[in-house]
Amino acid sequence: MDSALLIEKIVLVLVILGITLLIATYSTYAERKIAAFLQDRQGPNRAGIFGILQPIADAGKMFFKEDLIPAASEKWLFIMGPGIAMFTACMTGAAIPWGTELHVFGYTLHMQIADIDIGILYIIGFVSMGVYGIMIGGWASNNKYSLYGAIRASSQMISYELAMGLSIIAVVMMTGTLSLKEIAAQQHGINWNIWYQPLGFIIFFTCALAECNRAPFDLPECDSELIGGYHTEYSSMKLGFYLFAEYINMFISSAVIATLYFGGYNFPGMDFIESSTLLGWLQFATLFAKIFFFIFVFMWIRWTLPRFRYDQLMHLGWKSLIPLAIVNMLITAAVVLLKSNSF
């Protein structure tokens, strides 16, 4: 790898990380505004115009809070927990194609940090490592509520990972590749996977909600039962890391949903745009418009549906989603084979 490419990659890594953190920060604002809208309230409106500076004020507050570590906790594991949660959340963005090419100041940027041929497995791998952050943090707190939250979280995440993996297999069967770049490129124009995989999308979306610990699957931190769940004992930026990691995971999940099922950066009529500079920016904007839409859906669901009970959660995961995902996988396999080579 020559130095120009290396610099390009470093710039891209930092820019994507910055965008990720910015979106995660402003997701908290969006969440509160959307909640307010759905509940016919005002929402934050004091810091700056329309409360637009609220997330910055919150972040500043978290930085300057006292960093408490309970005397009874395992100190290093207690620090490691939120660190791992944040680290794994930041890692997942590397394999997502954020666009094709972008022309900036005469340079051509390839909008994917790492074009690896197992992109989707890489993302699933890091998402499932995120459970360690929650488990370690909850266990190290030496608090019964935290431990309950952590055990619920890990049990829930591993259960929904199965159905998630199975629903992705159907997409892989259609596209014949694990590379996210290839999967996005094959959905040119409006030839999106959602038209062929509606059931797979519903399964994947449900699992994404559960993997992000979002309502209606927010049992690991359900306030009314477990105080704060696995982050009961956390304060200052360590708590901030857990909350941020959740929003980053939501952002990345939306990006993966958009890439796998909704054509990623593709949009109808993209062949008619002749200027490649314009096309690059439009593709980038299209992907982010889709991502913002899915983040909105995540929030919409949170403020609409009540929380599941734990046995209902496990029933849905094991007894409904896994058999459905297997049926979906077999039907996809049969249809793809019927289309490609005759019986």
């Binding site: 470093i10 890594v13 990380l17 960093d67 660190g83 890489y122 200052s236």
Partner: peptide, 27 residues
């Protein structure tokens, strides 16, 4: 093609450690 992952790891790890140390110091 996996080299950018190393860069990403360095950036993510650097960010996490930096922020954790910083909040510990300034709070």
């Amino acid at each position: 093609s996996y080299l950018p992952i190393v860069l990403q790891t360095a950036a993510a790890l650097g960010f996490v450690v930096m922020v954790l140390v910083l909040t510990h110091l300034i709070g």
